[in-house]
Design a binder for these strands. Structure first.
Lengths: 106, 106
DNA sequence: CAATTATGTAATTATATGCTTATATAATTG
DNA sequence: CAATTATATAAGCATATAATTACATAATTG
């Protein structure tokens, strides 16, 4: 059980449509920044800033592999956030779209 | 299942500490505005504005009875919000404090 | 019905937020 | 190692948000 302050901060992270979409995408699998940029059709700095905030809030983790930085959910120990994300509409179609794309980032 | 937009809007309502506290208080029982003002030690207009936003977002309902306007949770049909509120730390001690107060509003 | 009590609303202000542009850093590749 | 690719960061701007102050409305009470 978190404090009200901690929970409010988490909700602030969840209250942005872009971040919520990113989280729902990461629910499917880990993704690199350029993947997310492609799928959301938004600028790279904007996506990077959202990812930074979510990392600071403990919702995602990053791991650099070669040129790419991959982000993944880190909510296994957060039952409360897990429960919330289970209610988010699936973005699997966007993931399928990504898989059918010519790789844009490389 | 709501849309991402709807969910983001709900999270925005939940992302303010004052509103989150009010919701957790209303989980205990319905309260009039002056009760909430007393418990949160905040100005009446500020509380009123928060309540208005939550009413617009469908989280609470108001019912005027005499001089007082009572607010109550309206999340029975919102399993998703219900689930979230079940994770909020209890505010029952604040309610007890209220019950032991000389009635401040009247 | 005038005064009081409870609440709502509008205007203002200060701060927070998200996006863009420009630039920096880091790894890769030819 | 120079050029390219992927990502991060900083500065600036426009909008959003929450709180205060002042005022409006509504019901109650003497």
């Amino acid at each position: 059980m978190d404090t009200l302050d901690t929970m409010a901060e988490t909700f602030k992270l969840l209250s942005d449509k872009t971040r919520l979409t990113i989280l729902s995408l990461l629910k499917e699998r880990e993704l690199c920044v350029c993947n997310i940029v492609d799928m959301l059709q938004m600028s790279q700095p904007s996506i990077s800033q959202h990812l930074r905030k979510m990392k600071a809030g403990g919702l995602v983790s990053e791991s650099r592999r070669g040129k790419w930085t991959y982000y993944a959910l880190t909510i296994d120990d957060k039952p409360f956030v897990n429960e919330i994300l289970s209610h988010i509409p699936s973005q699997s179609s966007k993931i399928e779209w990504l898989d059918n794309q010519e790789s844009v980032c490389d």
